[in-house]
Simulated scan of single mutants.
Amino acid sequence: MLAVIRYTVPEAQSQDFMKQGQHIIDTLAAQPGYLRARLARSVDEPNLWALVSEWEGAGFYRRALSAARMAMYPLMILMLNEPSAYEDVYVPGQDE
């Protein structure tokens, strides 16, 4: 399961955002079902960032969000209000 949370971050806040994003990833990484995560910045729109994580399933992701709520709270005003959980429908090389 793939989770994508996008943020609009003013340039003046980008360094603080990156530090807070690293803290969120560290918090998520300690949760059951976590596989990997990364913080990415758009090459076309530098104010657009994404926190991308992979999970063993949607239940793990949703419980991890609850555990990481306090770490994520300062960035909530920068979040884009859109769905964040995506179910894998095709992964090359994965048993079908």
Rank of each mutant, 00 (worst) to 15 (best):
L78E: 07
P46D: 07
I24T: 13
G33P: 01
L35H: 09
I25W: 00
R38H: 05
I77T: 11
A12H: 01
E54S: 06
L39H: 01
G59T: 13
P74C: 02
D16C: 02
G21N: 06
M76N: 15
Y7T: 03
Y73H: 13
Y7C: 09
F17V: 13
L75R: 06
R63V: 01
V89M: 08
E56H: 01
R41T: 05
F17I: 13
R41K: 13
L35F: 02
D16P: 01
R69G: 04
V9F: 13
E87F: 11
S42C: 10
R38W: 03
E11L: 00
P32I: 15
E96M: 07
L75P: 00
R38K: 11
I77A: 15
W55A: 12
D44S: 11
N81S: 12
I24G: 04
K19D: 05
D16N: 04
D26M: 10
Q20D: 12
R38L: 10
V91Q: 13
G57R: 12
L2T: 12
I24M: 05
A85E: 06
P32M: 15
A37R: 11
D95S: 09
M70A: 15
L51C: 06
Y61M: 08
Y7P: 04
R36V: 01
A67H: 06
E45R: 14
D44W: 02
S53K: 07
R62T: 13
A67P: 00
P10L: 11
L75I: 14
G21H: 01
S84T: 14
L2N: 04
A67T: 06
W55N: 11
Y86D: 06
